[in-house]
């Protein structure tokens, strides 16, 4: 009874929190509420017997995404707008826009569509909500019992944990493409060249002894946790994604504390690290064609070993990708520092 009440409150809290995220005036506060939303979502997944994705959501969905948002909001605040578009505008218009725009230090946003648009929108939105609500309570029974099939074939997958088996064996093609998407995202973000832009790079704090001490203390712990999650993925919740998320968060911490400098030498090590997950996955996936004749169809005898090798490299790439997405700036050619190799050594 109590657990049912808890589920009801949690289920009710999520849409309300989403509403608050979108209506709070202060953007910083909105991002903090967003992080709280992510943690509550993770909690609801833990309630729904999905510890794998609860772990990933807490680390990536709430933690890293929240850090990304905070970083961006920080980049949009307290800086004068470039005057490129104002040359032909009257001073009055510019001043009024200034008043609407956020003032330094307080990223306020309350620009919305006019009231009649909002009023007219409520009808179709409510209708959509009712239709979707009716659809989810009257779901038909699934035609194929995938849960049964997955558990029947778990024996042949080489690992003992259902989610890992699906990710790296039954549906490994999806995971391969997903790693490709990650690589593509870094390339896309780098091509925007935010390194030149003022405030485009993650803010670095220098000489904060408490932060340095904390990060030095956390680094070995997080590496152990990441390694454990990777190893545990074969038979219980965990795996490359969760391990990559933890190590990626470590990368962000190291960059933020200034212990590892982001414009990493000529970046060739970083580039290789980012691509190695996809390359190894694709390489093994095509190499097994020689043995079995099918893409990503592992020979039964060596399945476990191949999955572990793939997961190991996936972890490195996922961790580096998440950290690189946070730093946003591509590595510079002209600087020759060695810090990067340290970071890579730690994460692999």
């Amino acid at each position: 009874m109590l657990s049912l009440f808890f589920d009801a409150v949690l289920a009710l809290a999520l849409p309300l929190l989403a509403w608050r995220v979108l209506t709070t005036r202060d953007l910083y506060r909105a991002v903090i509420l967003f992080i709280a939303f992510g943690l509550l979502v993770a909690l609801s997944w833990a309630r729904l017997d999905a510890p794998d994705i609860a772990l990933a959501e807490a680390a990536i969905g709430a933690g890293l995404t929240g850090a990304l948002f905070l970083n961006t909001v920080g980049g949009l605040v307290g800086r004068k707008r470039s005057p490129s578009r104002e040359s032909d505008e009257s001073r009055e218009v510019a001043e009024r826009r200034e008043a609407i725009q956020s003032s330094p230090g307080e990223p306020v946003d309350e620009v919305m569509r006019p009231w009649w648009v909002r009023l007219a929108l409520t009808v179709p939105i409510l209708a959509l909500g009712l239709a979707l609500g009716w659809a989810v309570v009257s779901f038909p029974e699934p035609a194929i019992d995938l849960a049964q099939q997955a558990s029947d074939n778990l024996e042949a997958s080489g690992v003992d944990h259902g989610v890992t088996a699906v990710l790296l064996n039954f549906r490994s093609y999806d995971t391969l493409l997903e790693i490709g998407v990650l690589l593509l995202a870094v390339v896309a973000v780098w091509s925007l060249d935010l390194g030149r832009v003022r405030g485009g790079q993650a803010a670095l704090s220098k000489g904060l002894p408490v932060l340095h001490g904390l990060v030095r203390l956390l680094t070995p712990i997080m590496i152990i946790v990441g390694g454990y999650l990777l190893w545990a993925g074969a038979k219980q919740p965990g795996g490359a994604f969760q391990a990559g998320a933890v190590l990626g968060a470590l990368g962000v911490l190291l960059v933020l504390s200034g212990l590892v400098r982001p414009p990493l030498s000529d970046g060739s090590g970083l580039r290789i690290g980012l691509a190695v997950g996809f390359a190894v996955f694709l390489g093994i996936g095509t190499a097994v064609m020689l043995a079995t004749g099918e893409l990503l169809n592992y020979p039964p005898a060596s399945t476990y070993g191949l999955i572990i090798i793939i997961e190991l490299f996936l972890t490195v790439s996922i961790a580096l990708t998440l950290a690189a997405l946070f730093v946003t700036a591509p590595p510079r050619k002209e600087q020759g520092s060695k810090e990067h190799s340290e970071e890579k050594g730690e994460e692999s």
Partner: peptide
């Protein structure tokens, strides 16, 4: 486990 794997991929 199939939707779980999809969501895990989706989060990333």
């Amino acid at each position: 486990p199939v939707p779980h794997a999809m969501v895990l991929t989706g989060i990333v």
